[in-house]
Amino acid sequence: MNQTTTVLTEIVAFILGRKYYANIIHTRGTNKCEVSSFIFRSKQEAHAHRNALESNLSYKFVETVSFRSRHDYSKLTTYSK
């Protein structure tokens, strides 16, 4: 538990899991839609990734989805612009 969270937040995270975001992308020229390989802790990080996809010729942004997980994804390498 870090100093920026409350006890109640940590209890909810333990019971329900932490909230994460992922972007669904479409591979251009195919019928394939899939979840991006990046998992984000905030919606702002997911939107920054979406903005980076606008200039990409291989992938097209479809939507951002949120999910809860008890696995701590914050320890993994994060997306950088």
Rank of each mutant, 00 (worst) to 15 (best):
Q3M: 11
F38C: 12
T78H: 15
S37Q: 13
F67M: 03
V12T: 02
E45A: 13
R70V: 03
N51Q: 13
S36T: 03
Y20R: 06
C33H: 05
S74I: 03
T4K: 12
F67P: 02
N51Y: 05
K60M: 08
T5V: 10
L53M: 10
T9I: 05
R68E: 03
R68C: 10
V12E: 03
A13K: 01
E34F: 12
R28N: 15
H26V: 02
S36N: 04
S55Q: 11
L76T: 08
T30W: 03
N2L: 06
L53C: 02
V7S: 12
N23C: 14
F14W: 01
A52K: 10
S69H: 09
S69N: 12
A13R: 00
I39H: 04
E45L: 13
S37M: 06
S58Y: 13
T5C: 10
T64P: 00
V65F: 06
K19H: 03
A48P: 00
Y73L: 07
T78C: 11
V35D: 06
T78W: 04
L53G: 02
C33F: 04
N51P: 01
A22K: 15
L8Q: 13
K75R: 13
T5M: 10
M1S: 12
V35G: 04
H26W: 14
I39N: 02
N2F: 04
S69D: 14
K32F: 13
L8A: 15
E10N: 11
T4R: 12
V62P: 04
N31I: 06
E45M: 08
N56I: 07
I15S: 00
N56M: 06
M1D: 07
Y79T: 05
D72N: 15
I25Q: 05
V65S: 10
L76E: 10
T77A: 11
A46L: 01
I24N: 11
F40Y: 10
T78N: 08
S80F: 13
L53E: 04
I39F: 06
N2Y: 05
Y21F: 15
K81V: 06
S80T: 15
T77P: 05
S36F: 04
Q44G: 03
K43R: 12
F61S: 07
N56G: 07
I24K: 14
L76C: 12
E34Q: 14
A48E: 11
T64K: 00
V35M: 14
S58L: 15
Y79E: 07
H49D: 06
H49T: 01
N2K: 09
T78V: 09
R18Q: 15
F14L: 04
L57A: 09
V12R: 01
R28P: 02
T9A: 14
K60Q: 09
Y21Q: 06
I25F: 02
V65N: 11
F38E: 08
A46W: 00
I15W: 00
K19S: 01
M1W: 05
S80R: 13
I39C: 08
G17N: 08
D72P: 02
